Computed example of a mutant assay.
Amino acid sequence: MSSRFTRTGLACALGLGLLGAMAGCSGSSSAPPPAATAAQVSVVTLQPENQPITTELSGRTRSRLSAEIRPQVGGIVQQRLFEEGALVKAGQVLYQLDPASYKAAHASAQASVAKAEATVNAARTAARRNAELAKIDAVSQQTNDDSQATLQQAVADLGVARAALDTARINLGFTRITAPIAGRIEASTVTPGALVTAGQTTALTTVQQLDPIYIDVTQSTTDLLRLQRELASGALKSGTDKAEAAVRLVLEDGSAYAHAGRLQFASVTVNEGTGAVTLRVLVPNPERTLLPGMYVRAVLEEGVAEQALLVPQQGVTRTASGDASALVVTPDNKVEQRALKVSRAIGSRWQVTEGLKAGERVIVEGSLKVKAGDTVQPVAATDTAPAATNVATNATTR
């Protein structure tokens, strides 16, 4: 009897244990899942700033003054009196031609002048004497008139002789070929012993003034009209008088030129072939780093965009149609998608004209793992806007 009761008690105990386990499993399956962790994203808080708007234009250097040296008289080159590639001064003798024949012509002209002066003196004496004698009817009036005419002719002949002397002196001086301007002189095309002629087409050498130097750049009329519209609408504020604007230069190897230039003028005629106007920049060149014909890029400041909003380019996406948008984190840390209008790229950032306000937070990292409506954990981005070159592209983007 006791044995049967014992077996029955064990069976009841096992049944109660199974029911407790089943109850425990049922309770664990009905518990709510743990909350999902909000994704962490990097954001940039937009702050308005006064942004200089610049345009980078390509151009080539051009010497401010250039003189091709040609002989004004013919002759044999006796000496070359300069070092090729050196700096020369205005008036410095560059070549010496054989002066022998020109010295002889000069001496002959001097003799002709002396002869003409003697003739004038004799004619003047005769004319004075005949004039006195004519007063007392000692000579005829005809004789007096002839002597006066002879004096006038002698004076005229003296003038011709003196002009010939001046010509001979000038030609003799032309045998010393001098530099008309100061500058750097190029290689010589002739050597001593060469025969040169007056007015020949081939220059003996060229002197170019390199300090200061010109840079001619072109700007499209499209960009010019856009700039005028933005200035007229107030989107841009003119920082300086454009006729006196400072210009920074970037050399062909990408390095910055040490000296700033000044904008001299913009041409008033549009090139029909290119649709562009020419801008001329005057640049100091004391080290003679810039040589004529070099390619450079001129960075011209056109104005200042006041209270501009600049968004890092990685925070702006585009649709297949080219429309720009950005993901914005709202004050309650929700993601919101905004349609934007951007005007130009400034360094590594876009200038936004519509769609964003100062103080809003734009996602620049982590946008691929979130979508509009998600709750996120925003963290201030670091090094998201590297130092911009402040060179604004002229292409308007919408």
Rank of each mutant, 00 (worst) to 15 (best):
G355P: 12
V296Y: 10
L309F: 08
L251I: 10
A256W: 01
L249D: 04
A388C: 02
V370I: 15
G347E: 04
R344M: 11
L356G: 06
L368G: 11
L263F: 08
D253N: 15
W350L: 05
T382G: 06
G355W: 14
P386F: 05
A358V: 09
P312R: 06
Q264G: 07
A258E: 13
S325D: 02
G261Q: 01
D332F: 07
K357R: 15
N333Y: 06
M294W: 10
P286R: 00
T269A: 11
G366T: 02
A380Y: 11
G293K: 06
L368H: 11
E287T: 15
R349Q: 15
L282H: 00
V299K: 08
P331G: 07
L290N: 02
G359C: 13
D374F: 10
Y295W: 13
S325Y: 15
V311N: 00
D332H: 03
E354Q: 11
P286T: 03
Q351L: 12
T319D: 14
A308L: 09
K341H: 12
G303Y: 12
K334G: 05
L310W: 02
T330P: 11
A324T: 10
V268H: 05
R361M: 07
E336M: 07
G273F: 11
K371Q: 15
V370F: 09
G261W: 02
S367T: 09
R361G: 03
A246G: 04
V281E: 03
Q337D: 06
R297N: 13
V304H: 03
L290P: 06
K334T: 12
L282T: 04
G366S: 15
T375D: 06
P312M: 10
D332T: 15
A345M: 12
T384F: 06
E354A: 01
T384R: 06
Y257P: 05
I346C: 06
V376L: 11
L310H: 00
P378T: 02
V296H: 02
V328K: 09
L368C: 01
A320Y: 07
G275W: 00
V342R: 08
A387V: 14
A381T: 02
R248S: 15
D253W: 14
G275K: 00
R318A: 06
S367P: 01
K334P: 02
G373V: 03
Y257A: 04
P284I: 10
Q264L: 15
A276G: 11
A372V: 14
R349I: 01
F265Y: 13
R262K: 14
K369M: 13
D332A: 14
A256K: 11
T278Y: 11
E302M: 15
M294Y: 09
A388F: 05
L279K: 00
L282V: 05
A320D: 13
G366F: 10
S267N: 08
P284S: 07
V335Y: 07
V250I: 15
E360C: 07
P378W: 02
A358C: 12
G355I: 13
V342I: 14
S321V: 09
V379Q: 14
V316T: 08
K341A: 11
Q377Y: 12
R262F: 01
G322V: 01
A345W: 12
E302S: 12
V296E: 08
K371N: 12
A345I: 00
V342C: 00
V270L: 01
